[in-house]
């Protein structure tokens, strides 16, 4: 099986990016909402550390995924009204933008708060800015707002995929599902 996408289906690399990042996002977002209310203690720091490590992983995956995407073709969309094709394209662009913007805004928030940034106890990353209470508040706001936008866009993206699968009975969803499900 070729690694690259074909005219009719996404390749296994793209599918792995898609579902792998979904799993990580599905884990990190609830943790992000949960951790802020934890009482101050080492447990809280550990949960934050995990959140940051996964966030950095997602940022790295976003970089790799974008590079991969730029170097490969996209399967043709099944027949659909032009507005749907445009909406799908816009949602995909937005998801790519958010895949960068969400972790970067978290990184900025962490830097402005003056906290260390470490990837799974292995590598420390530099701060994007010095401690700055005003910027910290703004970056936090941004981080949270971007996640809210992301959840809405992901919801629409998933709803559209399910609609194509169950209502239109086309290959949109199958062309991304794990496994061999390509287009006939």
């Amino acid at each position: 099986m070729a690694l690259r996408s074909t005219a009719t289906a996404w390749g296994p690399v793209t599918r792995a990016f898609h579902w792998g990042m979904l799993v990580l996002f599905a884990g990190i977002v609830p943790v992000g909402y949960y951790m802020t209310d934890l009482p101050l203690g080492p447990q809280k720091l550990k949960v934050y550390a995990l959140h940051k490590s996964v966030g950095l992983t997602l940022l790295a995956l976003a970089v790799l995924r974008l590079a991969w995407r730029l170097g490969e073709r996209r399967p043709a969309l099944p027949p659909m009204p032009a507005w749907q094709a445009r909406a799908a394209g816009a949602a995909h662009v937005l998801l790519y933008v958010l895949a960068f913007a969400i972790p970067l805004s978290g990184w900025l928030f962490n830097s402005a708060a003056g906290f260390p940034l470490q990837w799974f106890h292995l590598v420390n990353l530099p701060a994007l800015t010095g401690p700055d209470p005003a910027l910290k508040a703004a970056a936090r706001e941004l981080h949270e707002s971007l996640v809210a936008v992301f959840l809405v866009v992901v919801g629409l993206h998933a709803a559209a995929a399910l609609k194509h699968h169950f209502v239109d009975h086309d290959t949109t969803l199958r062309s991304m599902l794990p496994g061999r499900g390509g287009r006939p």
């Binding site: 003056g114 906290f115 401690p131 209470p133």
Partner: peptide, 15 residues
């Protein structure tokens, strides 16, 4: 002063 108000606050606690 550790250049992080959150950390400064934490550092003063009983722990």
């Amino acid at each position: 002063d550790t250049k992080s108000p959150d950390r400064d606050q934490a550092i003063g606690t009983a722990d």
